[in-house]
C-alpha cells in the first residue's frame, strides 16, 4: 500500500444466501485504485460490476477481506460512520440520475452540502460554481421534470462534485442517454478527471464509454480478466 493508492481491496469476498443456496460473487478479490485514475469496469450481467461499485461506495459490505481507503480501513465502520465517510469522500452518479423530483436543480445540488458545516451563503456559492461547471447555471430553479435526460445527468454530476469528494462512482452514467448526450457527459467526466484530479470509477456496458477512461477492467464471474491493473 503506497500513498498514491486511493483504494485497496485485499482478499475481498462477497456471498449471498438465496434460499438454501450460497451464491459467491467474489472470492479473494484483490484490487488497487490509484489516485487520479479514471477506471472503467466492464463485464457481462451478473459479473459483479455493481456489487463491486456498491462495496467501493460503502453501501454494501464485503463478507470477508479488507477494504482500505486512503490508508484507512473502512469495511468495519458502523452504518452511521459509513454514512459520514460517504458524505466526505464519495460522489455518486446514477444511471437514472436519482434527482429528487420535488427539488429544483439548485436544491438537488445543495443536498450533500447540508451534511457539512457550511453557511447558507457558502452553500449557495458552491452550488452556483458546480452548476456553472456543468453549464447549467441558468437552470438552477428548474425542476427535474423540466429538464432533458442529459441536463438531469449534468445536475447529478454537479451534485456529485459540489462537496469536492475524492472519488466519483458512476453507475452506467450514460445508459439512459443518446450517443451525443452520452459523449457530452463522458467528456465532462474526463474533464473532472484531468483538470480537477478527480478519481473516477465508472461501471458501463458501453465500450465507447470505456474509451474515455484511463484504464478499463473486465470482470467475469467475479474475477478480473485483465491482469495489468490488478495488484
Amino acid at each position: 500500500m503506497t500513498d498514491d493508492h486511493l483504494f485497496d481491496l485485499k482478499g475481498v469476498s462477497k456471498r449471498f444466501i438465496k434460499g438454501k443456496e450460497a451464491i459467491s460473487i467474489f472470492d479473494g478479490l484483490d484490487m488497487t485504485i490509484k489516485k487520479g485514475d479514471f477506471l472503467a469496469i466492464m463485464g457481462p450481467s451478473g459479473s459483479g460490476k455493481t456489487t463491486l461499485l456498491n462495496m467501493l461506495g460503502g453501501v454494501d459490505q464485503p463478507t470477508g477481506g479488507e477494504v482500505w481507503f486512503d490508508g484507512k480501513r473502512i469495511d468495519k465502520l458502523s452504518e452511521g460512520q459509513m454514512a459520514n465517510w460517504r458524505a466526505g469522500n464519495i460522489g455518486f452518479i446514477f444511471q437514472f440520475y436519482n434527482l429528487m423530483p420535488m427539488l429544483n436543480a439548485a436544491r438537488n445540488v445543495e443536498l450533500p452540502l447540508l451534511l457539512t458545516n457550511l453557511s447558507a451563503a457558502q452553500r449557495k456559492k458552491s452550488v452556483t460554481a458546480a452548476l456553472e461547471l456543468v453549464g447549467l447555471a441558468d437552470r438552477a430553479s428548474h425542476l427535474p421534470k423540466e429538464m432533458s435526460g442529459g441536463q438531469m445527468q449534468r445536475v447529478a454530476i454537479a451534485r456529485a462534485i459540489v462537496s469536492d469528494p475524492k472519488l466519483l462512482l458512476c453507475d452506467e452514467p450514460t445508459g439512459d442517454l443518446d450517443r451525443n448526450t452520452a459523449d457530452e457527459i463522458l467528456e465532462m467526466l474526463q474533464l473532472l478527471n484531468k483538470e480537477f484530479g478527480k478519481t473516477i470509477v465508472m461501471v458501463t456496458h458501453d465500450p465507447s464509454a470505456a474509451k474515455y477512461a484511463t484504464h478499463t477492467l473486465h470482470l467475469d464471474k467475479g474475477q478480473f480478466v485483465e491482469k495489468d491493473l490488478v495488484a
Binding site: 461506495g57 453501501v59 452511521g80 454514512a83 443536498l111 450533500p112
Partner: peptide, 14 residues
C-alpha cells in the same frame, strides 16, 4: 424508496 436510498447513499442519516 429510491429517493430515501439516494439520500442515504449521499450520506444522509437513517
Amino acid at each position: 424508496s429510491k429517493e430515501i436510498a439516494t439520500l442515504r447513499a449521499i450520506g444522509f442519516s437513517n
